[in-house]
């Protein structure tokens, strides 16, 4: 084998490339196993009756008798449908509100000069560092004083507060990639600032605000902390909090718990499926040509 001047064994480039490729595959397989196994367990338990799943004292990993029985039990004996609806309402309003704020604030930060702009920008990033639980207690006090506890609106505000720092930052970065000449050319042609925003800026910035919306969606949909603090009326629980209660109930077993987990996974899965191209574009700001 050839040796380099320093006496080290030189690895031919072809072998190096092959090793790199093998390394990438191995890593990918390990990651995939870690991600897939729990998801598979969830699915397999959700679609088997408990008696089949745990027959013989072992977990039956290959469903022989798939059934929707667990889902039926969920909807017949628990308030799952209410929880699910609560989650949808709060998530939708949070997504809308957070994206709207992000678009306006991001545009303002990009296109207007004002006193204290750099402080405002830093404050936005700084506020993103807080974990939700740090905000939860003060927000509880504020909402208590304002009478916003136990309301969709209150929870929407709280979740918007958590997601907005990041979405504003994202939109701010994204708007910087939209050339000002596009706007100027619209102004010269007679379009007002609002019209320009609507006709030119927003269509061009679509990957940006879709990403912001997806982020706000995932914050709101997956939220547990804020809902636990702000909602004390069981009829207003989102599905995350509702599902956690099942663990304490003797009538609800693993099958039903896994079934509710499947339900929780469906909306994010659909979003990822249909909007992933925007997500990649939006988070790749700067990598765009």
């Amino acid at each position: 084998m050839a040796t380099s001047p320093r006496g080290l064994v030189a690895v031919p480039q072809r072998i190096q490339a092959r090793l790199t490729r093998i390394g990438v595959y191995v890593t990918a397989v390990v990651v995939a196993v870690f991600v897939t196994v729990p998801v598979y367990l969830m699915l397999t338990l959700a679609f088997q009756a408990p008696a089949d799943a745990f027959a013989g004292g072992r977990v039956n990993l290959i469903p022989t008798n798939p059934t929707l029985r667990n889902f039926r039990v969920l909807f017949e004996t628990t308030a799952t449908s209410t929880y699910f609806r609560n989650s949808l309402v709060v998530t939708a309003s949070t997504t809308l509100l957070s994206t709207a704020i992000a678009v306006s604030a991001g545009y303002g930060l990009t296109r207007f000069e004002f006193r204290g702009k750099s402080y405002a920008a830093r404050a936005i990033l700084f506020s993103y560092m807080f974990s939700p639980i740090v905000l939860a207690i003060p927000l509880y006090v504020v909402f208590f004083a304002l009478g916003l506890l136990n309301s969709y609106f209150g929870l929407t505000l709280a979740l918007t507060a958590i997601s907005t720092p990041f979405t504003i930052w994202l939109m701010w970065q994204y708007f910087q990639t939209v050339p000002i000449a596009l706007e100027e050319s619209a102004w010269v042609r007679g379009a007002s600032r609002w019209r320009t925003l609507w006709d030119v800026v927003l269509p061009v910035a679509r990957p940006g605000y879709v990403s912001a919306a997806i982020f706000a969606f995932s914050v709101a949909w997956n939220d547990f902390t804020m809902a636990r603090v702000i909602m004390s009326d069981e009829n207003l629980y989102p599905i995350t909090v509702g599902a956690s209660l099942f663990l304490d109930r003797p009538t609800i077993g693993w099958g039903e718990t896994m079934a509710v987990s499947v339900l929780i996974c469906i909306p994010p899965f659909l979003i990822a499926l249909f909007l992933q191209q925007y997500l990649l574009q939006g988070f790749n700001v700067g990598g765009l040509e």
């Binding site: 050339p179 000449a181 596009l182 100027e184 050319s185 619209a186 102004w187 010269v188 042609r189 007679g190 379009a191 007002s192 006709d199 030119v200 269509p203 061009v204």
Partner: peptide, 20 residues
């Protein structure tokens, strides 16, 4: 007057066509 209020047309160095 703001650009909207003047009747001018402008061609930009970057061309500035609307990509969408």
């Amino acid at each position: 007057l703001r650009p909207q209020e003047r009747n001018v047309a402008m061609v930009f160095q970057s061309i500035a066509l609307y990509p969408h």
